[in-house]
Design a protein around this nucleic acid. Structure first.
Lengths: 202, 202
DNA sequence: AATTAGTTTAACCATATGGTTAACAAATGT
DNA sequence: ACATTTGTTAACCATATGGTTAAACTAATT
């Protein structure tokens, strides 16, 4: 085998990430991915039988890292504050390094029933029950403000994920350039942590 | 002219909304839209010259209602609390009635440069400067906690928009069925309002 | 009844696109 | 050395898709 085999596969994955990210599954073109990877289109089908399989490979590789870690945090033996802090501190930098993921997931989950099915059945999702239970208990004993745990988990993901999903929109709305928005993301871990903790403080 | 002309156009728009929402611009098929509208594909091109124009028509019709109202709220002569309350109370029900919008915007803004350009140049976006200025002033005089106004506006949109964008994801994560998630949305206006106000309270 | 303008359709066209084939090139094993 | 396996390419194919055309149909208008 040629020495290139590893590099080629990686080159394809990298190219696919970019194209899928910016065009979505439906909008992505195999030719464009091949071009960006600097190879022939047939070679794409040699490494990844078809578009769907390439798509899945790219996707799983990125998501496989994220979900278990989040699950671990939520189910660890930590206080609410610690979990929120850990979640935010882990999630934001990760997504910042894998910006294509959220738009990708959102996009395909909304558009692609086959994908959705596989996605959910692949136990890719973190379990949040324990954390939500913790919230209920804490509010019972008056440790935190009375809050619907479902709403709070929704808030948690919202403030963390949305900046990446809505980046083009918010960039414009807040009149930032790319640098300025990146700076905002940089400061987001701290802001979001205190803001979330504040919102449930008694 | 036949009496049907209005109905046909509306039927097309309705069909297009559904298809564009669930498939995105790239994934939508003119044939499918025609089928759903109960007409011939050629008739689609008779009413809307091409896919792009149909897309824009559908989009503008929905967004045209939203942006001005948001702008009005942010620039009105209201207190911070009143603005937050008004924003949340208006935005959530509206998006709930036009669920395709956020995914639509996010999707195309991330994928379709032509769309992005038109979208931003059409002054479709609310101006938030005044509101952000208000936040700065309020924190200066100690009326609210010291908070980065950009981050807060980001939070504002995040907690309001994300549930609709991330619906399939969060529905699963929180183990809700459609009814359950709708109930959550229902309670969201109140939750989000208090949570946001709480997060900046001294 | 004939004309006209607007509406609708079936059939068609050009092209883009996902995917295949067959042949060639480079490693690898024997 | 040579046969075999693996990697890579150019050319090709079938189909899906956006869009067009020309003719038919409908309903007012003359």
């Amino acid at each position: 085998m040629k020495s290139k085999d590893q590099n080629t596969e990686q080159a394809i994955m990298n190219a696919a990430v970019e194209i899928f990210q910016s065009k979505g599954m439906a909008g992505a073109r195999m030719q464009e991915i091949a071009d960006k990877a600097g190879i022939n289109k047939a070679l794409l089908h040699y490494y990844f039988r078809n578009k769907q399989m390439l798509f899945e490979a790219v996707f799983k590789s990125a998501l496989g890292q994220l979900a278990p870690e989040i699950s671990k945090i939520f189910n660890a033996d930590l206080s609410i504050e610690e979990k929120i802090t850990a979640f935010v501190s882990y999630y934001i930098p990760f997504v910042n390094q894998n910006r294509f993921l959220p738009v990708f997931v959102i996009q395909e989950l909304n558009n692609n029933p086959v994908f959705a099915e596989q996605f959910f059945s692949a136990n890719a999702l973190p379990k949040t029950e324990k954390f939500r239970y913790q919230l209920i208990e804490a509010s019972k004993i008056g440790e935190i403000r009375n809050v619907d745990p479902d709403q709070f988990v929704l808030d948690l993901f919202a403030v963390v994920v949305f900046p990446f999903v809505g980046r083009p929109l918010m960039k414009n709305l807040l009149q930032k350039d790319d640098q300025g928005f990146d700076d905002l993301i940089q400061g987001r871990i701290e802001h979001v942590t205190t803001m979330l903790l504040n919102s449930i403080k008694k």
